[in-house]
Deep mutational scan, measured.
Amino acid sequence: MQRVNMIMAESPGLITICLLGYLLSAECTVFLDHENANKILNRPKRYNSGKLEEFVQGNLERECMEEKCSFEEAREVFENTERTTEFWKQYVDGDQCESNPCLNGGSCKDDINSYECWCPFGFEGKNCELDVTCNIKNGRCEQFCKNSADNKVVCSCTEGYRLAENQKSCEPAVPFPCGRVSVSQTSKLTRAETVFPDVDYVNSTEAETILDNITQSTQSFNDFTRVVGGEDAKPGQFPWQVVLNGKVDAFCGGSIVNEKWIVTAAHCVETGVKITVVAGEHNIEETEHTEQKRNVIRIIPHHNYNAAINKYNHDIALLELDEPLVLNSYVTPICIADKEYTNIFLKFGSGYVSGWGRVFHKGRSALVLQYLRVPLVDRATCLRSTKFTIYNNMFCAGFHEGGRDSCQGDSGGPHVTEVEGTSFLTGIISWGEECAMKGKYGIYTKVSRYVNWIKEKTKLT
């Protein structure tokens, strides 16, 4: 034993070699072989497995989906700052455009905790909710729209109204504003409101030439003092309507412009014939205590009207009353817009006519005020429907199939267009061939041609 100890002390290297040989010859039971080890760690190889990531292109799944990435790591994937920024906006807080917040056709661009709407022409605001041009839906104005110097929408209202708090709607500024039905039992019968379409306001006024200088022999019209197929109006439903009495009662109609003036057809009036105007009328054979009678003290036909040349060209006249009318729910003026808007309103496509005229061709006159909704007829169809001249200051309205029309005794009465609950004068009943005849239409004086003249002559002093 002493000898062994001496050998170990003198030859430590020998001992180490012996131990190493023993270990190498022993069977290893701690580690699995290569094949079995792979069965336990069965993990798919990654895209760049075996390579240094710093030297390969980034992978979106590896960089940002398996674990949260930084902007720089995302930049490695896209290799483009702009594309990385677009991805980053949604990656950080989701897609803010998912709810489609942009209105009126706006395009949404996502941002971090926010979004941006790219608005089409005519709109602005956070969600493109603000109209900035009158060309689109009248700028959301209830009545009139004008573009300011910086191309912003400025709404306005006709006389007797003021802008509401929203700067879009119009509200009454006087007790009985024009064009409004205020009798409670008839307010439910107000005709369907007309909503502004998209309009090209630059070209809204037709490029028409008034044929002022045409000389033409007097034409022989049949029954051209021209509501057939209409309905009984309720008291106060058309408070701007008046009836004219002269040699015979209810020979023509008219509309209240203001307390002192009536507008009617020029062919209705004769110099030297006494005319009485009755406002607030409903049943011409009954006294309903809503009527107001006034005498006409002055007749002003349009300066281009000449019955000797043509009885229905420039067929418009103004009547001055001896005493002002007292405005109330049964006696209310009709609204008159400017030339541009009167023309736009007419193009809405349908209007209402009213009167006490004959209820059928050569038949009896109506006792109760009649009204009828009539569609506008395109000019080409209008011209083809008659052998008589249709001037540019006239328009056609009615039904091709016949059966409904204005008729004798309705002449001078109103053709009105309702705009968001307020009625505007767009025409004056003038003439036609018979009444409600198939293929024939009622012919009306186009008020847009005469609004400046009306307003100039009827100013209240």
Rank of each mutant, 00 (worst) to 15 (best):
E193N: 11
N258C: 02
K274C: 04
T458Q: 02
N328W: 01
N166Y: 02
E53T: 09
L23P: 02
K126R: 14
R379V: 09
K146M: 11
K146V: 07
G179A: 01
Q219H: 13
S204G: 11
A265F: 02
T218K: 09
E401C: 05
F424E: 01
V56P: 15
K440D: 15
V227P: 10
R404K: 02
H303G: 07
K188L: 07
D405P: 13
E76N: 14
D315P: 01
R46W: 09
P333D: 01
F31Y: 14
T215E: 05
M6V: 11
N147H: 11
K438N: 07
K45G: 11
N138P: 05
H314L: 00
F399Y: 14
F121A: 04
C145A: 03
H282K: 06
P375Q: 11
Y450K: 02
E76D: 10
M6K: 11
E79D: 15
G230K: 12
Q96P: 07
H289V: 13
F121Q: 05
N151W: 06
E61S: 09
G50N: 15
G349Y: 12
E129I: 02
V374T: 06
E433L: 05
N135P: 05
N258R: 02
N100C: 04
N127D: 06
N5Y: 08
E159G: 07
V174W: 05
I309K: 13
V77M: 12
K455A: 06
E124K: 02
T422N: 03
E142F: 04
S25M: 15
E82T: 10
R379P: 13
W431C: 11
N295W: 04
D338C: 04
D111L: 10
G125C: 00
V368K: 15
Y305I: 02
V278A: 05
N147D: 09
E61T: 11
N59V: 04
R162L: 09
F176V: 08
C170G: 02
K137G: 14
D212G: 13
A192W: 10
V202F: 14
E73A: 08
T422S: 04
R83A: 14
K339Y: 12
H282R: 08
F31K: 09
G398K: 06
V242L: 02
A207L: 11
T16Q: 09
A37F: 08
N304Q: 12
C157H: 01
A149W: 06
A265D: 01
N213Y: 07
E53N: 08
C97R: 00
L318R: 00
F221K: 13
V243K: 10
G280W: 02
N245I: 13
E86T: 15
Q408Y: 09
W88N: 15
S220M: 07
W453M: 01
